Measured scan of single mutants.
Amino acid sequence: GIPATNLSRVAGLEKQLAIELKVKQGAENMIQTYSNGSTKDRKLLLTAQQMLQDSKTKIDIIRMQLRRALQ
């Protein structure tokens, strides 16, 4: 079985993952909103794209940590 310490770690990672998935969803929504907007929305679009990139990276890292914890 999986050690108890790993189980609480997994629960924490799953919570983090859920949050990051919401951030990713929000960033994707912002990108959709701003991509057909005016030029003043360009900065917001770039910010949203950066957020999305960061979020995807975090999600990958969390998933990797989850896999390790579940081994």
Rank of each mutant, 00 (worst) to 15 (best):
G1P: 12
G1S: 10
G1C: 15
I2D: 12
I2K: 11
P3F: 04
A4I: 12
T5N: 13
T5L: 13
N6H: 10
N6P: 05
L7H: 14
L7E: 15
L7W: 02
S8N: 07
S8Q: 12
R9Y: 15
R9S: 10
V10N: 02
A11G: 04
A11R: 09
A11I: 11
G12Y: 15
G12L: 15
G12C: 15
L13K: 00
E14V: 14
E14H: 11
E14W: 15
E14R: 14
K15P: 00
K15C: 14
K15N: 06
K15I: 08
L17A: 00
L17Q: 00
L17N: 00
L17K: 00
L17V: 01
A18W: 07
I19D: 11
E20V: 07
E20D: 01
E20M: 14
L21R: 02
L21W: 05
K22H: 05
K22P: 00
K22F: 05
V23A: 07
Q25W: 07
Q25A: 11
Q25Y: 06
G26P: 00
A27N: 02
A27W: 15
A27P: 00
E28V: 07
E28D: 02
M30F: 06
M30V: 05
M30Q: 05
M30G: 01
I31D: 01
Q32T: 08
Q32K: 14
Q32A: 13
Y34S: 04
Y34C: 09
Y34A: 09
S35E: 12
S35D: 09
N36K: 10
G37M: 05
G37A: 08
G37S: 09
S38K: 09
S38Q: 09
T39E: 12
T39N: 07
T39L: 08
D41K: 02
D41S: 04
D41V: 03
R42L: 13
R42F: 13
R42S: 14
K43W: 06
K43L: 12
L44Y: 04
L44F: 07
L45M: 05
L45S: 01
L45Y: 05
L46D: 04
L46P: 02
L46Q: 11
T47M: 15
T47N: 11
A48K: 00
Q49V: 13
Q49C: 15
Q49M: 11
Q50H: 05
Q50D: 04
Q50M: 10
M51Q: 04
L52F: 04
Q53G: 03
Q53I: 09
Q53Y: 06
D54A: 08
D54Y: 04
D54L: 06
S55V: 12
S55Q: 05
K56H: 04
T57Y: 12
T57W: 06
K58G: 01
K58M: 07
K58Y: 02
I59F: 00
I59C: 02
D60L: 11
D60P: 01
I61W: 13
I62G: 00
R63H: 04
R63T: 05
R63E: 06
M64F: 06
M64A: 13
M64Y: 07
Q65L: 13
Q65R: 05
Q65M: 11
Q65V: 03
L66R: 01
R67N: 06
R67D: 09
R68L: 15
A69H: 04
A69D: 03
A69I: 13
L70D: 03
Q71P: 05
Q71S: 11
Q71A: 09
